[in-house]
Each structure stands twice: as C-alpha cells, then as structure tokens.
Design a binder for these strands. Structure first.
Lengths: 346, 346
DNA sequence: CTGAAAGCGCTAACAG
DNA sequence: CTGTTAGCGCTTTCAG
C-alpha cells in the first residue's frame, strides 16, 4: 500500500536544512528564521510527514497517554470480566467520567487508554503497562472500597490520581465529593416536604462514599427528630434498588420518603413503588444521587443530589497532568460540593 | 522518587550475558539454553526490569494499541463534544461494544485508546494519531450514516474495521447485523400476537441500519396484508422515542403494536403509553431492538431483537488484528444474525 | 546457542 | 539562528 513513511531526515533533505531545524519547527520551538520555517512547513506538507511517536517517546520519556482504569476489588473468580465491564457501563456515571477526562485531555493532545482491573492478573497488567512507560500515569475509578490497585501504584512510584478517597489512606491525589453534605441535602428536601418516616437504599457500605451519604442523611434526619432511619444496602444497580426497596416496604409499609444512594437505584425504587400502587411523590417521595441520565429517564423525573462528575473528572485529569509534568509533587485532594436538583420525585 | 529504570543492559550485566540473550528470553524466543534462561529470569526479577515500550515500538513498528473511535458526522458547531460523549455513553449499546473489544484485546495484551471524532478537527486528530504510529489501527463505531472518517482512514492506508456497513462503500472490513431479518423478527412477533395496526419508531434514517430494520419490518407486515406502516423518526435516545410515539399516537390513536429501532426509544415509548393510560402489552405491544440493559430496566421488560454486540465487537477487533498482522489483506464483512428475545412487552 | 554491531526516528546539548 | 553529534532502549541480522 504505502511507501515507507517519511522521516525527519526526508523532510530535512527536501527543505535543504538539518534534522534539528525541522525538529524545531515541528515542535514549535522559536529561534527559527521565519523564512526557513516556511520552507520546512512546505517540505512537511509535500512529504506528508508525521513524526514518529515511538521515537519521540524514547527520548522525551513521555507518551502523552494516560491509563483510565476502572478498578474493582474482585478476585478472578468473583465474576467474569464481561459482566464487570457491562456493569460499569450500565451506570451512566462512568460515561460522565469519560466525558470529563476527555474534555481535559483532548485539547492537550493527550489520550486515555481504557483498562479494567477487577482481577489480580489485570491489576498486574495495569502496573506493568505503566512501568513499561506505555502511559505516563493513571486515572483510577474504583468500584469497591478496598481496591488494592491504588496502593500498588503508589508503591511503584507511578503517577496516579483517584476518583474518590480510598477506604484506607494512600499517598495519592484524589478528587471527591462532599458526600455527607449530599446526604444532608437529600434529608432537608424530604423534611421540607413533610416526610418523617424515611428510609434509605444505600450503596455498598464498603464504598466510603455510600457510608458518608448515609451518615449525612441520618445526621440531618436525627437533628429534626427522626432518630432512626431504616436502610437496605444495594449495589448501585437498578435491580439492587428494586430488591432493597421491596425489603424495606415489607418491613416498613408506612414509608413516606426514600433516599437512594444513586439514581439507578432510585429508578428501581420508583418502579417498585409504582408497581405497588404508590404514587411518587404524593405517597412516597424519592431522592436520588448523581444527577445522571437515569434521573431524567426515570418516571417521574428524579429530584436528586447532583455530583459534578464531569468537572471532577476533568480536575482529576488536571491533577495527574501536573504530577506527570512535575508541577505538583505532593498528593492533593480536591473536594467538590453537591447540589440539589429538584424535579418531580420529591 | 525512583532510581533510573533498569534497562536490558543492566539485566545483561547482572546475569553475565549479552543484551541480545536477555532480549531473547524476554520475548520468549527459543534457542536459549534453559540454564541461561533461568539465570536471566532471576536477574530480571532482581532488577525489577520492565521492557521499555517506546524503544521496542521503535524497532518493531507496533504499539499493541488500537484506537477505539466513536465517530459522528457532525460539524464542530453542531453540538459540543461533551454532549456528544454523554449521548454516546447514555446508550448501553456502547458499553457492550467496549466489553467485546476488551474481551478480545486484553488476553493478547493489546489496549484500546478511546477517541471521539465528531468534528473535522477531531477527525484529523484521529488520522494523525494513527499516522504517527501511536496505534496500530482503528476500530470505528459511527453514529451517523455519512461519517467521513472511514473514507479518510482508507485513503491513508490505515488499518481499520468498522462496526456496521458505511452508508457509502469504503474499502474497509466491517462487522454488521442482518438488520432486515431483525425487522422481520419484530413483525412476526407482533403479527403472531394479532397486532394489525402497527407503527414504528425508527432510528435516524441516515443510518443504514435504521432504514434496513424498518424495511424488514414493513416487508414482513406487507406480506401479511398490512401494506402501510406509519413511522416516526427518532434519534436513538429515550427522549426522541417519547416524542416520536407521541406524534404517532396523535395521528393514529388506534395503534396496537409498535416496533422501536432500539431499546432506549422503546423505553420512551412504554413510558408515554403508560402515561396515556394504555397497557403494555394488552393495549399496545412493543418490540425493541438491541437487547441492551435498557430492555431489562424497562417496565414492562422489553421483548426485543437481540444484537450480539459483544460478539460482533470482539470479531471486529479480531479482524483488525488480522489486518495489522498482515494475516488478512482484503476487506471482509462479517454479518451476524439477530434473535428475538421474548419478555413482557410483546 | 550466544555475542557484536547496526540501526529504528527523534530530541537535545553543544558548537559554530 | 542553525548544524553536528550523541544517544534514548530495544530487536535483529550476522558471525562465531
């Protein structure tokens, strides 16, 4: 199909200058005579030159690539990779992370390599990938609280930034949300509506964020005279939301308000409520969390606690970039504020 | 933080052999004395050696990386990249593609770089990326029929495989579904239920797949005495499904069956139907397309035409791999068969 | 079966 | 401001 790709050498010959000069104009280094710059640019256009990334990386020690890894805590046996991947993308949350990350990376001509790490084997693969210099650093989104990957990355001195604070401290930067405040926002809304017999469908309690949302909710309720809030643990999936509310309803038939740990579970809650003939929000008010596309797709549309995921993801990429460039050396945390978005469900 | 990373040289010295020998054992080339192999392996372990990817790529001219590009036909102005990205991931369909692709790639230690190409600028970026040798080839999933990217890739002689046949012929391999058969499957189901006043909510007609699904459906209906099937065009989103069925219902209040171009739109259809007091499937039966997670999340769960997306995506990656390795030179098409999955909606 | 040597294409001192 | 010169770390003939 194609002749050998042209190299710097070819362009240099074509323009009648040295390789170094061509390299300078390609990399936008000043100190090059405008006339010669033009000459070189023409030669580049004529030859259709494209700089070889591997050669450049070899000397710059940069790939302009970062690993975007979705990481679980699972053993190989727990579930197959297919199931894991499917679950990850079933939650609109992850799409927003990608969107934010790409929003930061792309204008800088950087690119994300998608990796999944839910088994020991795949965690090794991620570490190896980075140690080989295939990517300059890692952005990691954990689905479990006790994900061993962050520590592994830190131990290897690999640049990495986490989405959400890890369950046990690690010397890595992270972005996170003030989850407790989010729980409070949900409680305030339900209280304002007059709900007093509320319950929550929490996310996995092993995930710090789930626990904090729950704590924030309970604190606020307690402060208003509701000392005890029954709760059922879910797994952030629609199905688990359905199961949790079903249990809750059986034990507490007089519920008048539900706070779900994410929108997907809130959607499941709304479904079951409707199936059992309860009107939302008249009979039972429902508040979700995230403000993902599920919140809008749900009937009724969900009142929910918005997590500025795109901004957080973008900031995460920015932090990593700074670590890579050496512009930042100490681990840092960036905590964002949640916001109540009122729709129809509460 | 870290001492300079060890190189082949270091390992060689440590093991008392030459670089070439170390390279051989690292790459699993035989013709190396087992005893020496052991020696080298120990040296590798001791030094913590990890081969430098850039250096290797420079000589092998392979990166073991492929671009996974989601491509639209938009102009820069049409919509922002954020919106595009969000829309892409809002459809569970894309998650399945990723799952299938990763399923093929990972066991082979290959990795996908995620790219979005909905503007001219970003299309250029994709081509440049590949021409620089940053990735060995591209897997492209187009959201529009008249996506200019495939032709651009073919013109540059870059290895690429498409998900779905492009609107206008291009000399690239692709995987696809027998969409017409899928439409027929949906019609057969509706007919078997006794529906005679059916309508369809199609995908964008600029996408060949949408048109074919519609054609297949209409053909089958016509063959059973229903010559005319009203149709409203949607955009594969839940919202567009809602809008389309609303129009349809206004014009044809006596509908008894709906075929939607994908599950997300079918979900919108079910919502509106419920809101208007029509029971699914008793009053109106609904058949979706894809068998994505939306089909299960929908109330009632959707009867739908299953597209084996993971298998297709995996096959797509396989084709690309063959093209890259030179094991396949001619463009090839792989067409998969759809399958009816019966749930509650029809 | 192993070692020596020649690059892969590029950047970055260092001279001029 | 431009050219010369070393490599970056690895694979791969080609000898031995």
């Amino acid at each position: 199909m194609s002749r050998q790709a042209p190299t710097l050498e070819d362009v240099a010959r074509e323009a009648g200058v040295s390789r170094a000069t061509v390299s300078r104009v390609v990399n936008g280094v000043r100190n090059v005579d405008p006339a010669i710059q033009d000459l070189v640019r023409q030669a580049i256009a004529r030859t259709g030159y494209a700089p070889n990334r591997a050669a450049r990386s070899l000397v710059t020690r940069r790939t302009e690539t970062v690993a975007l890894v979705v990481s679980g805590a699972g053993d190989a046996s727990e579930e197959t990779q297919d199931v894991f991947t499917a679950r990850v993308f079933a939650d609109p949350f992850f799409g927003r992370v990608v969107s934010g990350v790409v929003g930061y990376l792309r204008p800088r001509s950087m690119h994300p390599v998608l990796m999944f790490a839910e088994t020991e084997e795949s965690r090794e693969q991620v570490v190896r990938y980075l140690r080989q210099g295939s990517a300059d650093g890692a952005l990691v989104v954990s689905t479990h609280g006790d994900d061993p990957l962050p520590a592994r990355l830190a131990d290897n001195g690999l640049p990495a930034v986490l989405f959400a604070r890890p369950a046990r401290p690690v010397a890595l930067s992270y972005v996170d949300l003030a989850h407790r405040d989010g729980g409070r926002l949900a409680a305030d809304r339900l209280l304002a509506r007059g709900c007093r017999r509320t319950a929550t469908v929490s996310g996995p309690l092993a995930v710090p964020a789930s626990q904090e949302r729950l704590d924030g909710f309970r604190d606020a309720m307690a402060r208003h005279g509701c000392p005890w809030v029954p709760s059922a643990e879910g797994g952030f999936t629609l199905e688990s939301g359905r199961a949790a509310i079903t249990r809750l309803l059986a034990a507490h038939p007089d519920l008048d308000g539900v706070f779900a740990g994410n929108d997907l579970m809130a959607q499941g809650v709304c479904q079951v409520l409707a199936e059992q003939g309860r009107r939302v929000p008249q009979d039972v008010a429902v508040v979700g969390f995230d403000d993902s596309s599920a919140a809008v797709g749900c009937r009724p549309p969900l009142t929910t606690v918005r997590q500025p995921v795109e901004d957080m993801a973008s900031a995460m990429a920015g932090l990593l970039d700074e670590h890579i460039r050496g512009a930042r050396t100490e681990p840092t945390s960036l905590v964002f504020d949640p916001e109540l978005v009122v729709r129809a469900s509460a």
